[in-house]
């Protein structure tokens, strides 16, 4: 068996919304250069868990986190960690495509500019082109870079958002149900893109679509009521799950 390198390590992660505990001590290793999908019924904590990786939960008042989340060995909840810096290492793509209501070019250039990665000009042009090419959307938008990103189709918008995320050259890309608003063709394009991107990035995706988890991910984690029930290679989880609750969920028996 090949040795796996862990990009993210989660140890005994607990999360509270006010008084109610939403995650009950999760232990999980996200393997580097792979796609890991988080599945489970609504309200099981998978999105909450995903948002622990870029501390998006910080924005929610009364949200408290305990335990460790290590990004290549560094605790991202350590007091000296700058959330802004963290988010440039851990990018995020959201459920609804949410390009800024600005030009396609500006959508990509915004984050590199605020992080001071390159100056406007030729360097920025090149970065924008690379990001758009990497997200397989360059050919569709190269003639209309100054048009608003919101004028694209849903699937294109989502790929634009992915391009926007990889423009900062993160280590990890988090995707929160990225295809739930897209048609099957657009979905297939995103899945194909994920497959290409995992060479360079570690991808964690939350999905309600089990076929998508099966198709697009290498590892699958099943969450239920704030617990990690089962975690393993996708092929294993989908043919021979170890836990009856996983079995019931992925076969559509839920009672």
């Amino acid at each position: 068996m090949k040795t796996k390198k862990n990009k993210l390590t989660v140890r005994n992660l607990k999360l509270w919304y006010g008084e109610s505990e939403a995650l009950h001590g999760i232990d999980l290793d996200i393997v580097s250069g792979k796609v890991t999908s988080l599945i489970g019924p609504s309200g099981c904590g998978k999105s909450t868990f995903l948002r622990c990786f870029n501390r998006m939960n910080d924005r929610i008042p009364n949200c408290r986190v305990e335990g460790e989340v290590l990004l290549e060995g560094h605790d991202i909840y350590a007091p000296d960690v700058d959330v802004v810096q963290l988010r440039s290492h851990v990018g995020m793509v959201f459920q609804k495509p949410n390009p800024f209501p600005k030009s396609i070019y500006e959508n990509i250039a915004y984050a590199p500019r605020i992080h001071g990665m390159v100056d406007d000009g030729d360097d920025m042009d090149e970065l924008v082109e690379t990001a758009l090419k990497r997200a397989s959307i360059w050919d569709e938008v190269k003639d209309k870079l100054q048009q608003p990103g919101t004028a694209l189709s849903g699937g294109q918008q989502q790929r634009l958002c992915i391009a926007r995320t990889i423009a900062v050259q993160p280590d990890v890309i988090l995707m929160d149900e990225p295809c739930s608003a897209l048609d099957p063709i657009a979905t297939a394009k995103i899945e194909e893109l994920m497959d290409e991107l995992k060479e360079d990035y570690t991808i964690v995706i939350v999905t309600h679509n089990m076929q998508q988890a099966a198709r697009a991910s290498d590892y699958t984690a099943y969450f239920y009521l704030g617990d990690l029930i089962e975690y393993g290679e996708t092929q294993k989880v989908f043919t021979t799950p170890r836990d009856q609750r996983t079995e019931d969920y992925i076969t559509g028996r839920f009672g």
Binding site: N54, M56, R59, V83, V84, Q85, L86, R87, S88, G91, M92, V93, F94, K96, N98, P99, F100, P101, Y110, A111, I114, H115, C161, R164, T165, V168
Partner: peptide, 27 residues
């Protein structure tokens, strides 16, 4: 202004002020 715009900005590592000034206020 849709919450998704703020999320997009925060997700890219924009600070509070950058998010408000660059994205929320123009909208």
């Amino acid at each position: 202004v849709p919450e998704t715009i703020r999320e997009a900005a925060y997700g890219l590592g924009a600070s509070n002020l950058q998010t408000v000034w660059d994205h929320v206020l123009p909208l």
